[in-house]
């Protein structure tokens, strides 16, 4: 230390700096942070929801398309089944391919005797 005639030795009292807390500033900071968190979370949530909705939209669209395709296929299969079970086709197949013939009356057993499907029996007065 340079000592001059002007120099005086004085004790220094600010050896320990004491940092005083500014409570109002902290509160303000907290509020801002909370607000940012809320708004940010909301924005993120909205974005996430929107993206999910888009994803679901695509998924529903694909499923809808698949449903339509499956229904179409089912109708094609029903059509094919109907074609294959046509009485004319079955009879031709049975007679010509398998060599079958209609049974004679004495070869038949009558069990139900219900008549036409879903109809009432004839009226005998």
């Amino acid at each position: 230390m340079v000592r001059t005639s002007y120099a005086k030795s004085r004790p220094v009292h600010n050896r320990y700096l004491v940092r005083e807390r500014d409570r109002s500033l902290l509160m303000e900071f907290g509020r801002v942070a909370a607000a940012i968190l809320v708004v940010g979370t909301a924005l993120l949530g909205y974005t996430w929801l929107h993206l999910s909705l888009l994803e679901s939209g695509y998924a529903v669209g694909d499923l809808q398309q698949r449903l339509v395709e499956l229904e179409r296929r089912e109708r094609h299969l029903r059509l094919e089944a109907a074609y294959l079970s046509s009485p004319a086709r079955l009879e031709k197949w049975a007679v010509e391919e398998l060599g079958m013939a209609a049974p004679r009356l004495d070869q038949m057993h009558f069990i139900h005797d219900e008549g036409p499907p879903g109809r009432g029996r004839g009226v005998l007065q």
Binding site: E71, R72, R75, H76, R78, L79, A81, A82, S85, P116, P117, G118
Partner: peptide, 19 residues
């Protein structure tokens, strides 16, 4: 709309619409 199917008395398909 899919046009209705026509069935016989035993449920056989007589008319059906397909894409």
């Amino acid at each position: 709309p899919p046009r209705g199917t026509i069935y016989d008395a035993r449920g056989r398909v007589l008319a059906v619409s397909v894409e």
